[in-house]
Each structure stands twice: as structure tokens, then as C-alpha cells.
Nucleic acid binder design. Structure first.
Length: 294
DNA sequence: ACAGGATCCTGGGGGC
DNA sequence: TGCCCCCAGGATCCTG
């Protein structure tokens, strides 16, 4: 499932393969993607030089001088560069032939992804503004982050998945970040202390940074821009580990459904971030301590 | 405001 | 072996 680290890996892979190249031909399959492809876009893209490739949240932005190509990988999207003589795999929906006999290919089995063209970068940025795309996790300040959490009674899992609050986090890294911060996924945003908010922000940054280093997670469909798989799936602490022992305390990892998504956590390591009065805290500690008999 | 569910979509896996 | 059903989950829409 392409989230921020996977999209970042694709962008980094594509950069050397696309920069300075131009599109000489575009072929689009009949099957529709999430957003309908317009034939009128093709003329605006042809014979233009790729100036820059960047990521915004889970979006890939390819700047071609004035117009820009904006792609979202959805669940199973792949954006790769391959030699033109390499056979095209099934579910390849858009093929951009480059001026060096290679092809930029958009493949998406489940077609939740999209490829769109904006006339200028201003239009693309306006679109991100229109969908209220939140800040990058690496740009979040503690003040803004705590403010966002504090302003809602939604649970932390739902907050992390909300692209208007923080852009780029999906189901995998939401669960992994919550484990790293030792916060229970059902914790309500406004029950989180400043300290907990900060630890969640730092956990998110650490998990995403590590995942980028490992070229993302390849569970089923995800591959980078050069076709290489990621390695982060080998380091999951909770995601997809239902019934397995926690790597920290050996307690069985639990799966629940939150915000309509599978949510994995360690019931022992991850605590509810509620503000607990000192008296209740002492009682809770006493009940946890080992008993003299039994 | 927010939770929960349905929708889109296909392939893989489990059960029988 | 084949068939049915469920599951995966990003974005978006709808309902309660």
C-alpha cells in the first residue's frame, strides 16, 4: 500500500530516469482510472522537458515546464520506467514514451489510483489547497500538531489517517507510529498531553524516515520507480502481526477495526493517553504490581 | 462534528 | 478442481 515512504521511493527512483527527458507519445487504455483521462491533456504534455519531480503527501508531481502531471498510486498503483521493448504487464493503463526509447508506465490493478494533468503548477497547488491537504509530517511543529490533536474527539488512528491533518500517513505507518509512541490507537485526540503529542510526532518522523531508508514496504503490489521492492515489511512491530508476540514484551498483538481499517497494537505497550488523576494512577499501579500469592 | 458504512476495484486465500 | 465469500484499504460520498 503506497504511503509516504513508498511514494518518496518512487519519486527518488524516477528522478534520474526522467529529469531532462520529454514525452514523445502517450497511450491510454480504455479502462478508466479514478479520474478520467482527457485526450486534450496529451497535446499539452508532448515535447516538454521534465524539470522536476517531487512528492506532496501521497501525490507524485512531475513538472514539465509549465504543465504538470500529478499521480496518485491509490492502493496498487505502480509508476515505473522500463525499456520500450520490455513487455507491458497486465493492468498497465497509461504509457508515456520518452525521447530515449524508455517508457514511463502507470500500472494499477485495482484502479484506485489516478493520473491527472494540471495546466500549471499553480493549478496543482490550488488543487492541494482545495482538498485541504495537510502539512508534511517532517514539517509539523509541536504547536500545530498538539493543536490539531487537541481540537478533536476523534481517535488517534483516525487522526493519523486524515490527510487534511497530516499528509502521507496510511494504515501501516499509522499503526507503526502509534506503537513507537506507545499510544493506544483508540486514544482520543483531546486526551493527549503535549508530551504524548510530541512523542507521537517524533515516532511518526522516525518510522517514516526508517521506512524511506528501507525503500518502503512491499507487501503485495508495491515496487519502486525502478521496479525494486522495499524492505520495511521485515521490520513491522505491529502491522499484520495479529496473534504474534510483541517484539518488546511478548504480549500477543491484537487486531481491531478503527476508522473502518484494520488496526494492530500491543495491548500492554500501548496505553490510553487519557489524563488520569494521581489517585487513580496509584490504584492502577498497585493492581498491576505482582501479588504475594498466586 | 463525527462515526460508521458503502463504494470503487481485483486478486489472493480460506473453507467446503 | 471449482465455487463462494471475505479481505486488503486510499479517497470520497452518504447517512445517522
Amino acid at each position: 500500500m503506497p504511503e509516504l515512504p513508498e511514494v518518496e521511493t518512487v519519486v527518488r527512483d524516477l528522478r534520474p530516469l526522467l529529469l531532462g527527458r520529454s514525452f514523445v507519445k502517450i497511450a491510454v487504455s480504455r479502462k478508466s482510472l479514478r479520474r478520467k483521462w482527457s485526450r486534450a491533456w496529451e497535446a499539452t504534455l508532448l515535447d516538454r522537458c521534465v524539470h522536476a519531480i517531487r512528492r506532496r503527501g501521497k501525490w507524485i508531481v512531475i513538472e514539465l515546464g509549465i504543465p504538470c502531471l500529478v499521480a496518485h498510486l491509490g492502493m496498487t498503483g505502480q509508476l515505473t520506467v522500463a525499456s520500450a521493448d520490455q513487455p507491458r504487464e497486465a493492468h498497465t493503463h497509461v504509457v508515456f514514451t520518452l525521447d530515449d526509447q524508455t517508457e514511463l508506465r502507470f500500472r494499477d490493478v485495482r484502479r484506485f489510483g489516478s493520473v491527472t494533468v494540471f495546466p500549471t503548477m499553480v493549478h496543482a497547488d490550488r488543487y492541494f489547497l482545495q482538498i485541504s491537504l495537510g502539512p508534511e509530517p517532517f514539517d509539523l511543529t509541536d504547536g500545530r500538531w498538539f493543536g490539531s490533536l487537541n481540537a478533536t474527539r476523534r481517535n488517534l488512528k483516525a487522526i493519523l489517517l486524515d490527510q487534511t491533518i497530516v499528509a502521507g500517513v496510511g494504515n501501516i505507518y499509522a499503526d507503526e507510529s502509534l506503537f513507537e509512541a506507545r499510544l493506544h490507537p483508540t486514544t482520543l485526540g483531546n486526551a493527549v498531553t503535549r508530551k504524548q503529542a510530541k512523542s507521537l510526532r517524533l515516532a511518526m518522523v522516525a518510522v517514516l524516515t526508517r521506512a524511506i531508508e528501507k525503500r518502503g514496504s512491499s507487501i503485495r503490489d508495491y515496487i519502486g520507480g525502478s521496479g525494486l521492492k522495499g524492505e520495511m515489511q521485515n521490520e513491522f512491530r505491529v502491522y499484520g502481526r495479529t496473534g504474534e508476540p510483541c517484539r518488546r514484551c511478548r504480549t500477543t498483538i491484537v487486531r481491531i477495526v478503527l476508522a473502518g481499517r484494520s488496526t494492530h497494537y500491543c495491548p500492554r505497550c500501548q496505553v490510553l493517553g487519557t489524563i488520569v488523576e494521581p489517585q487513580r494512577l496509584r490504584r492502577a499501579r498497585a493492581s498491576r504490581s505482582p501479588k504475594a500469592t498466586g
